[in-house]
């Protein structure tokens, strides 16, 4: 197991390196002189000279990459000239919002998607299944930003149940915090819960016909105990894989949801960076989000042996 873990972690390293190369080059591909595009309207000769020195712009490209990488490992993610703050600081401030949003959306997807999917698969081709299938199809077809707008229209502007935007930190109270995150989490998690619903449904369908389930039933095990005891264990791998992959969609979707609900998270930071051509900030946020995604999938991979004792490495 440990050997596999090490191997898996090591194999993630070249992927991370390649990602960093892609991100590094994405800025260099923009037409124009690096100093000019990074500094924008704050361009002065001194600032440009300082930038050139810091990033070794007169050196060959591979050298520049190594310098940049070195800076990263020292925690220097560059400086956002438009926001006048170090990128690392901006990321740190935005992180709790996105983490909470992603976590809540994931919880929503898990607690709504999995049970509903199981119900549908268990009662295959009967009414609950039809409902679940339809719900799942609708869930993956509705754009999450439209769902968010509709929720704002009904729950916030008409019924005044929730604030239409803005993040209330935990320090101001758990209730207020959850209130401000409810609609964003549902809007973002909705599509993911539909995906999870569909795959738990088909996972359930597959499992339900298996011999050992019939065996368990014959022994007198039914309903919830059957599910928790046998089904969950055997479907978990698929579902966890899906969840891991869907976090990518959550992280990407957070860009749009954070914009609609005025949440100052990493997603809206990335959007701001790209719209403002704030290239160093863009590098930092994109690198950060993709690294998070790779790490999450790594954890998912490593968790397989926990989930299924048959998987031996």
């Amino acid at each position: 197991m440990l050997r596999y873990a090490c191997k898996r972690i090591l194999s993630a390293v070249p992927v991370l390196l390649l990602i960093s190369i892609v991100v590094f080059f994405s800025v260099r591909l923009v037409p124009g002189d690096f100093a000019t595009i990074v500094l924008g309207n704050l361009y002065t000769d001194e600032a440009a000279a300082a930038l050139r020195q810091q990033y070794g712009l007169d050196q060959p490209l591979p050298q520049q990459y190594l310098i940049w990488l070195g800076n990263l490992f020292q925690g220097d993610f560059g400086y956002s000239y438009i926001s006048r703050q170090p990128v690392a600081e901006l990321l740190l401030k935005a992180l709790p919002v996105t983490l909470e949003l992603t976590a809540l959306s994931l919880l929503f997807a898990i607690f709504i998607g999995i049970p509903l999917g199981y119900v549908g698969g268990y009662h295959r081709n009967r009414l609950p299944d039809s409902c679940v299938s339809v719900l799942g199809l609708i869930g993956i077809s509705v754009p999450n930003f439209w769902l968010g707008s509709m929720m704002i229209l009904t729950l916030s502007l008409t019924l005044h149940l929730f604030p239409s935007g803005g993040f209330v930190p935990l320090s101001s109270g758990l209730a207020a915090n959850l209130r401000s995150m409810f609609m964003p989490a549902v809007a973002l998690g909705g599509a993911v819960s539909a995906v999870v619903m569909r795959s738990s449904r088909s996972a359930m369908i597959e499992v339900v016909d298996q011999e050992y389930i019939k065996m368990a039933r014959a022994k007198g095990v039914y309903g919830l105990r059957l599910i928790l005891g046998h089904v969950v264990r055997n479907t978990m791998i698929n579902i966890v894989t899906i969840l891991g992959l869907q976090t990518g969609s959550l992280l990407g979707g957070s860009v749009v949801i954070e914009k609609i609900f005025s949440l100052a998270g990493v997603g809206s930071l990335a959007l701001r960076a790209i719209s403002n051509r704030d290239y160093l900030l863009m590098q930092g946020t994109v690198l950060f989000i993709t690294t998070m995604f790779v790490l999450i999938n790594l954890i998912v991979d490593l968790s397989y042996s926990l989930l299924n004792p048959q998987i031996k490495y």
Binding site: L92, K93, A94, L95, P96, V97, L99, E100, A103, L104, L106, L107, P163, G166, F167, V168, P169, L170, S171, S172, G173, A176, N177, A264
Partner: peptide
Amino acid sequence: LGLLLVLGACAGAPQPETEQPAGGE
């Protein structure tokens, strides 16, 4: 574990932007 991670991140993280009390509180 996931829940603990979330709560830990939120509670232990540096204070985000808004420092004043929320609406009608």
